[in-house]
Design a protein around this nucleic acid. Sequence first.
DNA 1: CCTAAAATGTAACAGTTGTTACAAATCACT
DNA 2: AGTGATTTGTAACAACTGTTACATTTTAGG
Lengths: 223, 223
Amino acid sequence: MYQILLNSPLFRGLTSDELDALMQNINHQIRQFRNGELLAQAGEGVDMAILLLQGRLQGEMVDFAGNSLKIEELDPPQMVAAAFLFGPQNKFPVFLSAKTEGRIMVILKKDFTRMLSLEPRVMVNYLNIVSAKAQFLSGKITFLSLKTIREKIAFYLLQRAKQSPNIQVDIDQTQTALADLFGVTRPSLTRSVLEMEKQGILEWSKEKVFIKNLRMLNQILGR
Amino acid sequence: MYQILLNSPLFRGLTSDELDALMQNINHQIRQFRNGELLAQAGEGVDMAILLLQGRLQGEMVDFAGNSLKIEELDPPQMVAAAFLFGPQNKFPVFLSAKTEGRIMVILKKDFTRMLSLEPRVMVNYLNIVSAKAQFLSGKITFLSLKTIREKIAFYLLQRAKQSPNIQVDIDQTQTALADLFGVTRPSLTRSVLEMEKQGILEWSKEKVFIKNLRMLNQILGR
DNA sequence: CCTAAAATGTAACAGTTGTTACAAATCACT
DNA sequence: AGTGATTTGTAACAACTGTTACATTTTAGG
């Protein structure tokens, strides 16, 4: 009945039978949605868990500035706004709209809470989801705190180089895409890259980077 | 026995007796620490919950750049690195050191997990703590995404004005302090404020701001 | 009321990034 | 191999913030 959910991070580790048994004890509801439908407005209160079963949703960041409004897409089976069901300010952070038609499962907060108590594995899964979100945001902040493009490049390369302690870093992306990821313009990124090449810090060819002077790269980040 | 913990967000809502009964079922340990002691290094794995009972701890952000390394202080009774006990990357995000002598309670992760299952109220409290963290970080990111100082001022004032929909906003802070909060230099902030005054958008006197043109203030954020 | 400290106003200049536009090189495909 | 699309190199200029230094005003305490 709920096979889709077995692959979701929230119910990971449960057998099909266990999930069925659990859901029989928990009030829930299936809702269809149409393409283009607006499921939730930013600022609206969150008083239920929403699990995407089928179709595709998109959340548009509440970007006042408008210029780089980021769109996050959501594929099943996944939970919507997992980090905003609890907490002091449980309001939707985004406008949630449908990109296709599909189905969601809705569980009221009090029933969701009961489910977590009933099944410790689901509780741990949920904790992992929310914590992952917090950790992701935390990492994003350290990155956003970097002021110059040089610093962003250095941070990015060093983080990648750490995983495979190599002088060569595969970035598997064009400079154009990377500029977008960094939130800077492409010519500005190129300018900084060329400057760093001129200074003998690195060599950028195609989608690979050779770090020629690790010391200087670290120095950019203040050691 | 654990009266200090009764005031902690984690055990909110429990009676003294309930807390005592709960802790008798959960393995835990009290540890003393000395002033200046390094309790955890950034990057070190987190496999236990740490509750500060007495004394004061400080976490120093892993700030490569060095220039604006932020220090977060922690007062009892509070949980340390609550959002990093679960999740895929459960490592300390900061260097944790003692500013005074004091005591912490240590609960291994598996015991902590069991505690959450045993007592739904503590589970909900913990979910609120972690979610609050995620929500705080989320808000911080929207703020960090604002590019110009004008935008930061506008966002800050509008957010404050929303709570008490008034033309006058009390900020209870000097420009110097605000500049620090915004992560910009004081002369730059002043420059932007004066510019906005000259344009008839607002009037800044002492620690109060009168919004003279709400439309223009919104326009700065792209409506 | 007076004075030292803190906060605010002001200005010139340097550094970094965005903007725009175009040239050159590379890639992907037929 | 040829060609259209994509990516990268380059440049001039505008916009914004940081830096530094100093003047002026306001605040807090005796």
